[in-house]
């Protein structure tokens, strides 16, 4: 049982990490993240980078959907805007890697603000439909603005370069993608300790009351859209450097659903939620492949015969978690923490 964690100041109470145990775990996590690329093989590093990119985008969607209560199905389109922005800047202007990534976020944020304008009038499912419509419009632009997007065949992106080092392999990219994602997650965690973040939560809980409290709805809703699409744009930019080719089919509509599912499975309105959700949604299909592989010796032609079963199992797992953990995977972590806090007493 943990004792003596009483806070004496408001600053201490607002701290991101309030106990030494938390700090210790965070140091361990940081060490694991630093050492991982030296231990993991190319396949796991590839997945680690992919998870990091998805975490960045899911965290963005969580700001909008989880914290501000605005349902969006346009996250993939915003990512595509970021990816194309990187491809354009890198190919036409030759600007440096980090600047391109940042600019990708800004361009996506600008598009996000435009898409977010209807959010003042429509909410819930209606807004979801509006964002779907926006993603179809953006898809049309990607397909037809050939001079920028390369049309249907898309654009190739040269390997990222940082301080003269070429970042072509997952090993090299890991060292930029994971820190950028870490900073973005940290940024999101801090956001909700500020007036802006709290305003988002107030809007989510009851927008009329929020307005009565003095929160200008349009400004804050658009700000939420801008921030969310900034995250998507940066994630899309990293995606572009990671896969090195961007086509209109790189970010299908299903990707938006993927992110919404990741946020819901992980836990809406928590910082940990999108991290766990994105990792779950990215890694579980891969881990299930190991089960199929494992069954290879006992099940003839396991790969072809069991692959459809694997997708059913994945779907069933999502339903399972939604039923048994409606508050998401983050709730499991919270319960584990509570168990240790109260041990040896029963939670």
């Amino acid at each position: 049982m943990r004792i003596a964690t009483a806070k004496e100041t408001y600053v201490a109470d607002e701290g991101l990490l309030t106990t030494n145990t938390q700090r210790a775990w965070m140091i361990i996590l940081a060490l694991v993240l630093v050492l991982a690329p030296f231990v993991l093989n190319a396949y796991w590093l590839y997945l680690a980078c992919l998870v990091a990119i998805n975490v960045a985008s899911a965290t963005g969607l969580n700001i909008l959907t989880g914290y501000t209560g605005l349902v969006s199905l346009g996250q993939a389109a915003f990512m595509a805007v970021g990816a194309y922005a990187v491809a354009f800047l890198d190919g036409h202007l030759g600007t440096p890697f980090l600047l391109n990534i940042f600019a990708a976020g800004l361009v996506a944020a600008a598009v996000g603000v435009l898409v977010g304008v209807p959010s003042l009038r429509v909410k819930g499912l209606y807004l979801a439909i509006a964002t779907i419509a926006a993603s179809f419009i953006l898809h049309f632009v990607f397909t037809h603005w050939v001079s920028v997007t390369g049309g249907m065949s898309g654009v190739n992106v040269a390997p990222a370069r940082l301080f003269g080092i070429e970042l072509a392999s997952p090993f090299a990219l890991y060292f930029v993608i994971v820190p950028i994602t870490a900073v973005m997650v940290l940024g999101a965690a801090n956001l909700f300790r500020t007036r802006i973040g709290r305003a988002f939560i107030a809007i989510r809980d009851r927008d009329i009351s929020a307005e009565v409290l003095g929160i200008p709805l349009l400004q804050y809703k658009l700000m939420s859209f801008a921030l969310s699409s900034f995250y998507a744009g940066v994630a899309g930019g990293m995606w572009a450097y990671f896969f090195r080719v961007v086509t209109p089919e790189s970010f299908p509509f299903a990707t938006s659903i993927f992110f919404l599912a990741a946020v819901i499975v992980g836990g809406l309105g928590t910082i940990l939620g999108p991290i766990l959700g994105a990792a779950f949604m990215t890694l579980v299909p891969e881990l299930l492949k190991y089960v199929v592989e494992w069954l290879g010796p006992v099940f003839p032609n396991a790969g072809a015969a069991l692959s459809p079963v694997r997708t059913i199992v994945f779907g069933a797992l999502i339903v399972f978690f939604l039923v048994f953990e409606p508050q998401g995977l983050a709730e499991i972590v919270r319960r584990i923490r509570r168990f240790f806090h109260l041990w040896p007493f029963k939670t």
Binding site: N41, A42, Y43, Y46, L47, L50, P170, F243, S250, P285, E286, K289, V292, E293, G303, S307, R310, T311
Partner: peptide, 22 residues
């Protein structure tokens, strides 16, 4: 040596990386 990709590019690349390391 093969694996399912669900016809998704990111999964295809994952399979490529996995199989070529194994």
């Amino acid at each position: 040596a093969y694996e399912d990709t669900a016809y998704k590019v990111d999964q295809s690349v994952a399979v490529f990386n996995k199989l070529t390391t194994q």
